[in-house]
């Protein structure tokens, strides 16, 4: 099943964009204009909804002519490409999007043919799957970690680096005590927000200078 690689899912969706000559600006441009305003950091709809590692939205205007002697041909519709690298089960991912960020989804996909709206998550999921193209080959550098596990690990890495630096040469008993405190603090630390530039260096790691 090439859509899946380990526990990550490679979702590829091509939604035909409404071709209405009376629309000004045209529907594809309306999508572009809206996407230009959507936050890409921790305010992103893909940060607010669960399960997205990386995702992109692309207005595909046409196929590309590569030059003679190949044939020049054109699409009748423009397509909105949604490429997502997400956790696990497709249905729960799509339902999660529809539940968490329906306004964004509607603002984007309402310019696509046959879009039912996200108010009914089941209908939204069914629509997305009708536009899905099976991925032929899918590569993932890390395929066994969820988004929360990844954010946690990045936070841990930074904290561990600081801890080691601050405890060089410390005697064993004190080190053990400080480590126990550190492990407890780290565990209770909230997860850094998805889409953010990572944890601030605020976590107290003990040792010298603190």
């Amino acid at each position: 099943m090439p859509n899946q690689n380990g526990s990550v899912y490679g979702l590829t969706i091509l939604s035909p964009i409404i071709n209405d000559e009376r629309a000004t600006p045209s529907h594809d441009l309306q999508i572009r204009n809206y996407l230009a305003t959507v936050p890409t950091g921790e305010g992103s709809p893909f940060a607010l909804a669960p399960g997205t590692h990386l995702a992109r939205l692309v207005v595909m205007d046409d196929v590309i002519y590569v030059g003679s002697p190949s044939i020049e041909e054109h699409l009748h519709s423009k397509y909105l490409v949604f490429e997502s690298n997400c956790d696990g089960d497709l249905d729960s991912y799509l339902l999660g999007l529809a539940t968490a960020v329906p306004q964004h989804l509607d603002a984007i996909w309402s310019h696509c043919v046959g879009y039912p709206g996200a108010a009914n998550p089941q209908a939204f999921a069914a629509y997305m799957k009708a536009c899905q193209i099976e991925t032929t080959f899918y590569f993932a550098a890390v395929n066994d970690k969820s988004v929360p596990e990844t954010l946690r690990a990045l936070q841990t890495q930074r904290a561990v680096s600081d801890f080691i630096a601050r405890h060089q040469g410390m005697n064993a008993a004190l080190l053990q005590a400080e480590f126990a405190q550190f492990a407890t603090r780290l565990k209770s630390e909230p997860l850094p927000a998805s889409g953010s530039m990572g944890p601030l260096r605020g976590l107290k790691t003990g040792g010298r200078n603190e």
Binding site: A36, S44, A55, V58, L151, L154, Q157, G195, M197, G198
Partner: peptide, 17 residues
Amino acid sequence: TDYYFTAYPHATANDLK
């Protein structure tokens, strides 16, 4: 690309591993 999101913009594949 019109819109691009990553859950961890501060990290590369090597950083993740």
